[in-house]
Design a protein around this nucleic acid. Structure first.
Length: 348
DNA sequence: TATCCGTGGAG
DNA sequence: TCTCCAAGGAT
């Protein structure tokens, strides 16, 4: 027997407390008949993967201004899209974003498929995003499982088993609660609950619409759930980058290969990044000088300490790697953050 | 199943 | 300064 009161309670809370987000159709507008634009739902969900609402907002507005629909995005040059994504991180998302837009145009007549299985076949769309798009954009009764939902379910049912082993159990709990009515609003409601009330630290149980049925709240374990298996320490790696500038203002940059770290992004030529500093090979012969200070940056799984070398290069310079980008084509904002930090050091 | 893949804000 | 971690996906 499905407990219908829990979803109803949450939807009533959502009707009063839904956040105003640029990609969201408010519950009031939705019930008045306004339907979401699948393109905007898709774009927002890709950007929101492992990324906060605060970080996504401006990027979403910029992208939808530059490319209002999937046809426009599909026709955009790769370099421009990668440049606009710079700073948001997880750059495979940007590469797959373009692949997906072009697949929707060429294989789906410019319209996003509405079913979970077809969505799942598209680049960059996994189980969570497929469920989110079919629920939010097409109002299908799919169960979305993201970090928020996992946390809310672990607490609601007081599941003490650590992640990731407990995931199937949490998914089962979530599926049992997913209502046939307003599944799109419900999916967003659970995630809003996790983002604003059932937070990782110091959850606001006192104002939670689910405080009464919450098992962890009763047991006093909410703040410690979900349990997680211990994570590995991050090693430190070292490297060198070369900032070469010509008298005409052009900078020597290279496009990184699609696979691997910062794949497809613009960057400064330099050494590999290794556990010990290595003698670097300059991209061309010049009077390279080390800048005072260093760049420190932390990626998902290692710390990086970067030495920054700079030199004025002759107009005749024929670099071993990379190519010169004319001054008017160079925007520091096109660089991934670690590369922009190196540029900032040179301008300090 | 485990690892790789960014970034910036909160505490 | 340091750890955690946010609407995950690909391999």
């Amino acid at each position: 027997m499905r407990d219908v009161s829990l979803p109803t309670d949450l939807l009533e809370w959502y009707d009063r407390h839904a956040r105003d987000l640029p990609w969201r159709v408010s519950p009031a507008a939705r019930q008045a008949g306004q339907v979401p634009d699948p393109y905007r739902v898709w774009l927002s969900e890709i950007m929101l993967q492992q990324t906060t609402v605060a970080a996504v907002r401006d990027y979403f507005l910029r992208f939808t201004t530059l490319w209002p629909d999937v046809h426009a995005l599909a026709a955009a040059p790769d370099e421009q899209v990668m440049g606009e994504w710079a700073g948001l991180g997880y750059y495979a998302r940007a590469r797959n974003l373009l692949k997906c837009a072009r697949a929707v145009v060429t294989e789906h007549n410019g319209r996003f498929p509405d079913d979970h299985d077809s969505l799942l076949k598209l680049p960059g769309i996994g189980p969570y995003t497929a469920a989110a798009i079919s629920a939010i954009a097409f109002d299908q009764a799919e169960t979305v499982m993201d970090g928020n939902v996992e946390r809310v379910m672990a607490r609601l049912f007081n599941e003490a088993t650590p992640l990731p082993a407990v995931k199937p159990t949490l998914k089962s709990h979530a599926a049992g609660l997913t209502p046939p009515q307003r599944p799109g609003d419900y999916a967003q409601a659970v995630m809003d609950l996790g983002a604003t009330i059932c937070t990782p630290k110091s959850p606001a149980c006192g104002i939670c619409p689910w405080r009464s049925p919450c098992s962890a709240r009763a047991a006093g374990t909410a703040a410690n759930l979900p349990a997680k298996s211990p994570k590995k320490p991050k090693p430190t790696r070292y490297g060198t980058v070369f900032l070469g500038r010509r008298a005409d203002g052009a900078w020597l940059l290279e496009r990184r290969p699609d696979k691997g770290l910062l794949g497809g992004m613009l960057g400064w030529p330099g050494s590999d990044w290794a556990s010990e500093p290595i003698p670097p090979m300059p991209p061309c012969n010049a009077d390279w000088q080390a800048l005072p200070g260093e760049v420190r940056h932390t990626f998902t799984h290692f710390h990086l300490i970067l030495t920054v070398m700079i030199a004025d290069l002759p107009q005749s310079c024929a670099p071993r790697v990379g190519q010169f980008l004319p001054r008017q084509d160079f925007r520091p904002s096109d660089l991934p953050t670690v590369m922009r930090k190196a540029y900032d050091l040179s301008q300090a």
